[in-house]
């Protein structure tokens, strides 16, 4: 009898300690909280993300790399090596954007692949091969899910838009294809997201993360440039006619936002 009383007392004290006099309960983690209304198909976010990235890469290629080479700036594959005096080639700029997205812990992820890549590790495999073959035919994005990875996937055509893309890939010693021409579909940009639908907040947050990733990638290039001997001046001017100059991150991002704002408004805000 005494034993039962002691146990009951101990349990009672424990219950008072844990539940009656305890501090407020811990909040549920974000994942376990009641989901926000996720009524936007993830395609909206993937399209917007691709729009921003494609514009940034186009600006980087056409306004930084191509004119920059004419005024003595050098771009190479080894740009992240400590000894290198180069900046990232456009494909590697995209890789840096992808890394910066990951560094933010974004659910969005970005990749670049091809059926004729310079590095075999960038070759499409599995289900992507079939979707890329179809994309090459009509140049339209492909959307599909990969249940094994629990990912929603979108492929967007990556078209040779600048002479530098073609010449670099045709002349590269490891390129499996050496007759690329302007306008060819050289590969596809792949975006992934773990969910089929997102909330309005997640959409805005995702787009903001892509802009931030672009800005950080460009800032990393500027950081590299500052360490080379005789660096170009960095300010509001672009390389080319204005000489050996580079725009600062703010100027570069203004150009990216100017190129994308109207379409982002249409696609991700007005949902047209």
């Amino acid at each position: 009898m005494m034993r039962q009383v002691i146990i009951a007392l101990l349990l009672g004290v424990a219950a008072i300690y844990l539940f009656v006099t305890a501090p407020p309960p811990l909040p549920e983690t974000a994942r376990a909280q009641a989901p926000q209304t996720s009524d936007l198909p993830v395609k909206v976010l993937l399209d917007a993300a691709n729009l921003v990235n494609a514009a940034a890469r186009k600006i980087y290629t056409e306004r930084i790399v191509t004119p920059g080479q004419q005024v003595g700036l050098v771009f190479g594959e080894d740009w992240q090596e400590a000894h290198s005096k180069t900046g990232p080639l456009p494909a590697l700029f995209l890789r840096k954007v992808a890394a910066e997205l990951q560094a933010q812990g974004a659910p969005l992820a970005l990749f670049l692949g091809s059926d004729q890549p310079i590095s075999p590790s960038n070759a499409f495999k599995g289900e992507q091969v079939r979707h890329f073959a179809a994309l090459k035919e009509d140049r339209k994005p492909r959307y599909f899910d990969m249940p094994a990875l629990r990912l929603q996937v979108a492929l967007y055509p990556d078209i040779a838009a600048a002479p530098g893309c073609v010449s670099c890939h045709n002349e590269h010693p490891n390129s499996p294809k050496t007759d690329w021409r302007l306008g060819d579909v050289m590969g596809a940009t792949t975006w992934t997201h773990p969910r089929a639908a997102v909330s309005d907040r997640e959409l805005r947050q995702g787009i903001a993360q892509v802009y931030a990733a672009v800005e950080r990638a460009y800032a990393a290039y500027l950081e590299k440039v500052r360490r080379i001997p005789d660096p170009p001046s960095i300010g509001s001017a672009w390389p080319g006619r204005e000489g050996r100059r580079l725009p600062d991150a703010e100027t570069f991002m203004s150009a990216v936002k100017e190129a994308t704002a109207a379409q982002i408004l249409d696609a991700a805000v007005l949902l047209r």
């Binding site: 992808a98 890394a99 997205l101 990951q102 992820a109 990749f111 692949g113 070759a123 499409f124 495999k125 599995g126 289900e127 992507q128 990969m146 094994a148 990875l149 990912l151 996937v153 792949t190 992934t192």
Partner: peptide, 13 residues
């Protein structure tokens, strides 16, 4: 070999 590259669909196998 950064981790995020392996989240790509081509590396599913």
């Amino acid at each position: 070999h950064p981790l995020h590259r392996f989240a790509e669909p081509r590396f599913v196998e």
